[in-house]
Amino acid sequence: MFVSLLIATPVSAQDRNVDKRVDRLEQEMRAVQRKVFPGGSSRFFEPEITPDTDTPTTQSTTSSAVSDLIARVDTLERSLASLTGQVEENGFRLKQIEDKLAATEVPPVSTDPGTFSTTPSSVPGADSTQATADPERVSGVASIVMPDTGDAGEDAYIYGYRLWEAKYYPEAQTQLKKAAADHPNHRRASFAKNLLGRAYLDDGKPALASVALYENYQELPRGERAPDSLYFLSTALVQLNKKADACRVLSELQEVYPGAASGRLSARVASGKAAADCS
């Protein structure tokens, strides 16, 4: 729209200028007609410019005026032709710009972990053929049984954990997302979201892992696995070659969760800082 305005504004100004010039030429043409036909009816000749009766009208002055007018009309026509060409050229350039923008436009990336799929069209590297068509894989996934303890939230998480432990990462990702979505207030929701990030990491998808892990920390900061998500987030950032960010994440882990950072996660914090070259 902004490009169109840039093109349309000078064209409109030039159109108004051309209109004024045409009006002036028409008035002068009527004046010449009155000189050639001094007794013409007002029906055909409007009195914008009255003939000068004090000045003798000669054939030479009439011819000169007509020739001058014709030359000016020719100039006007050339100007109009040039303006038309510029408008067409600008329109063509605008079309080229719009085509390039359409060709390079990319869809927005969602940060909602629930929107990620394990199909090849939405998650690079996911092999749905391997996950669904390989009889051995199908049999292996079928052998993983969901527990039935009466606690639906616990059972959903444990089933996802078993799939992850068996290295069926795409299936584990699907199950863990479902477990967290179906049981958002269960204590295992923090576990499920954290393990989802780890499943992405183990599946070679650090970008998706960073989204899932950060959202677990952001949405469930008091969850039992929020400190773990910060550690694994630093791991994902190192894999994405963002070591400075990884160091900041580890510093936040130590600041927000000092007990976990100096306790059960102390070894991981130390190894994470070494991997990120933190000073």
Rank of each mutant, 00 (worst) to 15 (best):
T53C: 05
A172Y: 06
L196G: 01
G39K: 08
R72W: 10
L208M: 05
A8V: 14
A276P: 00
V73A: 14
K243P: 06
S143F: 04
G272N: 01
R72M: 11
D203R: 01
R222H: 14
S82T: 12
D151A: 10
L80I: 14
A172T: 08
P258M: 05
M1N: 12
Q86K: 11
T119A: 13
Y161I: 05
S122M: 09
C247W: 02
P47G: 06
A180Q: 00
E252P: 06
Y231H: 00
D182N: 07
L94T: 09
A274L: 00
G40F: 03
E171P: 07
R137D: 08
G259V: 03
L253S: 03
S121N: 03
A152D: 02
F2W: 12
A267Q: 01
S4N: 08
G197F: 02
D277M: 01
P107G: 12
S64Q: 11
L250K: 00
Q14C: 10
R24V: 09
P135M: 12
Y200T: 09
G40H: 04
T104C: 08
N241P: 06
D112H: 07
V123S: 15
V11A: 13
T58Q: 10
L253V: 04
Q175F: 06
K177Q: 02
I144Y: 03
L176R: 04
A131R: 11
Y157P: 12
R264L: 07
P47K: 08
R78W: 07
V109P: 10
A244M: 04
K100F: 13
V22A: 08
K35A: 12
A207I: 05
V123W: 10
L76I: 11
S12G: 11
K193T: 04
I7V: 15
Y169W: 12
S42L: 13
A65R: 01
K167M: 11
L80E: 14
R93H: 13
T129G: 15
A226R: 06
T62P: 01
K273E: 00
S79Y: 15
